[in-house]
Lab assay of single mutants.
Amino acid sequence: TEDEKKIQELLKRANGDVSKAEKLAQSQGNEELARRLREYANK
């Protein structure tokens, strides 16, 4: 999905570090994506 692409892109930029990727999403003002990242990471 589009969200998964965004999540994978963020994870790439954060070198696979979920908490960093989450902070990136939040810094972009994207709380929804940050929440999805957390769920994605907890799979």
Results as ranks from 00 to 15, higher is better:
1 T>R: 12
1 T>F: 13
1 T>K: 11
1 T>S: 13
1 T>P: 12
1 T>G: 11
1 T>N: 13
1 T>L: 12
1 T>A: 13
1 T>H: 12
2 E>W: 15
2 E>H: 09
2 E>A: 11
2 E>M: 11
2 E>N: 11
2 E>P: 09
2 E>S: 11
3 D>E: 14
3 D>S: 08
3 D>M: 15
3 D>N: 08
3 D>R: 06
3 D>L: 15
3 D>A: 10
3 D>K: 05
3 D>P: 06
3 D>Q: 09
3 D>F: 15
4 E>V: 10
4 E>H: 09
4 E>R: 08
4 E>Q: 08
4 E>P: 04
4 E>W: 15
4 E>N: 10
4 E>C: 14
4 E>D: 13
4 E>A: 10
4 E>G: 07
4 E>M: 12
4 E>Y: 13
5 K>E: 12
5 K>F: 11
5 K>S: 10
5 K>C: 11
5 K>H: 10
5 K>I: 12
5 K>N: 09
5 K>A: 13
5 K>W: 14
5 K>T: 08
6 K>Y: 14
6 K>P: 05
6 K>V: 14
6 K>W: 14
6 K>E: 15
6 K>G: 07
6 K>H: 10
6 K>A: 15
6 K>F: 13
7 I>Q: 01
7 I>V: 07
7 I>R: 01
7 I>F: 09
7 I>Y: 05
7 I>H: 01
7 I>T: 02
7 I>K: 01
8 Q>M: 13
8 Q>G: 05
8 Q>Y: 12
8 Q>R: 14
8 Q>T: 07
8 Q>H: 10
8 Q>K: 12
8 Q>P: 02
8 Q>S: 06
8 Q>L: 15
9 E>F: 04
9 E>R: 04
9 E>I: 06
9 E>A: 09
9 E>G: 04
9 E>T: 05
9 E>N: 06
9 E>S: 05
10 L>I: 10
10 L>C: 07
10 L>R: 00
10 L>W: 08
10 L>F: 12
10 L>M: 07
10 L>A: 07
10 L>P: 00
10 L>K: 00
10 L>G: 00
11 L>H: 00
11 L>F: 03
11 L>Q: 00
11 L>I: 12
11 L>V: 04
11 L>G: 00
11 L>K: 01
11 L>S: 00
11 L>C: 12
11 L>A: 01
11 L>T: 00
11 L>E: 01
12 K>W: 10
12 K>M: 12
12 K>Y: 09
12 K>F: 10
12 K>N: 10
12 K>S: 08
12 K>H: 10
12 K>E: 10
12 K>V: 10
12 K>T: 08
12 K>L: 12
13 R>E: 14
13 R>K: 12
13 R>Y: 11
13 R>Q: 15
13 R>P: 01
13 R>D: 08
13 R>W: 15
13 R>C: 14
13 R>S: 09
13 R>F: 10
13 R>M: 15
13 R>G: 06
14 A>T: 14
14 A>V: 10
14 A>R: 00
14 A>I: 02
14 A>F: 15
14 A>W: 05
14 A>Y: 10
14 A>M: 08
14 A>E: 03
15 N>D: 09
15 N>F: 07
15 N>A: 07
15 N>Y: 07
15 N>P: 01
15 N>S: 06
15 N>H: 11
15 N>L: 06
16 G>R: 02
16 G>D: 03
16 G>H: 05
16 G>L: 03
16 G>N: 07
16 G>V: 00
16 G>E: 02
16 G>I: 01
16 G>F: 09
16 G>W: 15
17 D>W: 04
17 D>Q: 03
17 D>E: 03
17 D>A: 02
17 D>Y: 02
17 D>R: 02
17 D>V: 04
17 D>F: 02
17 D>H: 03
17 D>T: 02
17 D>P: 00
18 V>D: 01
18 V>T: 05
18 V>H: 05
18 V>Y: 15
18 V>F: 14
18 V>S: 04
18 V>C: 06
18 V>G: 02
18 V>L: 10
19 S>Q: 12
19 S>N: 12
19 S>W: 14
19 S>Y: 13
19 S>D: 13
19 S>I: 13
19 S>V: 12
20 K>W: 10
20 K>M: 13
20 K>Y: 13
20 K>F: 11
20 K>L: 15
20 K>V: 14
21 A>T: 00
21 A>N: 00
21 A>M: 02
21 A>K: 00
21 A>Q: 01
21 A>I: 03
21 A>L: 04
21 A>H: 00
22 E>P: 00
22 E>N: 03
22 E>G: 03
22 E>C: 13
22 E>D: 02
22 E>K: 03
22 E>H: 07
22 E>T: 07
22 E>Q: 08
22 E>S: 07
23 K>Y: 08
23 K>P: 01
23 K>E: 12
23 K>Q: 13
23 K>S: 08
23 K>L: 11
23 K>F: 10
23 K>H: 08
23 K>D: 06
23 K>A: 12
24 L>D: 06
24 L>S: 03
24 L>I: 12
24 L>N: 03
24 L>Q: 05
24 L>V: 05
25 A>Y: 01
25 A>H: 00
25 A>F: 02
25 A>P: 00
25 A>V: 02
25 A>M: 03
25 A>Q: 02
26 Q>A: 11
26 Q>P: 00
26 Q>Y: 12
26 Q>I: 15
26 Q>N: 07
26 Q>E: 08
26 Q>V: 12
26 Q>L: 15
26 Q>K: 12
26 Q>G: 05
27 S>Y: 09
27 S>R: 08
27 S>V: 07
27 S>T: 08
27 S>G: 08
27 S>C: 07
27 S>I: 11
27 S>P: 01
27 S>A: 14
27 S>Q: 15
28 Q>D: 13
28 Q>S: 09
28 Q>G: 07
28 Q>H: 07
28 Q>A: 11
28 Q>E: 15
28 Q>T: 10
28 Q>N: 07
28 Q>I: 11
28 Q>M: 15
28 Q>Y: 09
29 G>M: 04
29 G>R: 03
29 G>W: 04
29 G>F: 06
29 G>P: 01
29 G>C: 03
29 G>A: 04
29 G>V: 02
29 G>I: 02
29 G>L: 04
29 G>D: 04
30 N>T: 04
30 N>E: 13
30 N>Q: 10
30 N>S: 08
30 N>L: 15
30 N>G: 15
30 N>V: 03
30 N>P: 00
31 E>A: 10
31 E>C: 12
31 E>W: 15
31 E>S: 10
31 E>P: 11
31 E>L: 13
31 E>K: 08
32 E>Q: 07
32 E>L: 06
32 E>F: 05
32 E>G: 05
32 E>I: 05
32 E>W: 07
32 E>M: 06
32 E>K: 05
33 L>N: 01
33 L>A: 04
33 L>V: 04
33 L>T: 02
33 L>R: 00
33 L>D: 04
33 L>S: 01
33 L>H: 01
33 L>W: 05
33 L>M: 06
34 A>F: 04
34 A>W: 04
34 A>T: 03
34 A>G: 05
34 A>Y: 04
34 A>P: 01
34 A>V: 09
34 A>C: 05
34 A>S: 04
34 A>R: 04
35 R>V: 10
35 R>H: 09
35 R>M: 11
35 R>I: 11
35 R>K: 14
35 R>C: 10
35 R>T: 09
35 R>Q: 13
35 R>E: 11
35 R>N: 10
35 R>F: 09
35 R>P: 01
36 R>E: 07
36 R>Q: 14
36 R>H: 08
36 R>F: 08
36 R>T: 06
36 R>M: 15
36 R>G: 04
36 R>V: 08
36 R>L: 15
36 R>D: 05
36 R>S: 07
36 R>C: 10
37 L>M: 06
37 L>I: 15
37 L>D: 01
37 L>K: 00
37 L>H: 00
37 L>W: 00
37 L>Y: 01
37 L>N: 00
37 L>S: 00
37 L>F: 04
38 R>P: 00
38 R>D: 02
38 R>T: 03
38 R>W: 06
38 R>C: 08
38 R>K: 07
38 R>I: 06
38 R>Y: 04
38 R>A: 06
38 R>L: 06
38 R>G: 03
38 R>N: 04
38 R>F: 03
39 E>S: 04
39 E>N: 05
39 E>K: 03
39 E>H: 04
39 E>W: 05
39 E>A: 07
39 E>V: 04
39 E>T: 04
39 E>Y: 04
39 E>Q: 06
40 Y>D: 02
40 Y>R: 04
40 Y>E: 03
40 Y>F: 07
40 Y>P: 00
40 Y>Q: 05
40 Y>G: 03
40 Y>C: 14
40 Y>N: 03
41 A>M: 14
41 A>T: 07
41 A>D: 04
41 A>S: 07
41 A>N: 06
41 A>L: 13
42 N>I: 11
42 N>L: 14
42 N>G: 08
42 N>K: 13
42 N>F: 09
42 N>V: 11
42 N>S: 12
42 N>R: 12
42 N>C: 08
42 N>E: 12
43 K>E: 09
43 K>Q: 11
43 K>Y: 10
43 K>M: 11
43 K>G: 08
43 K>L: 13
43 K>C: 10
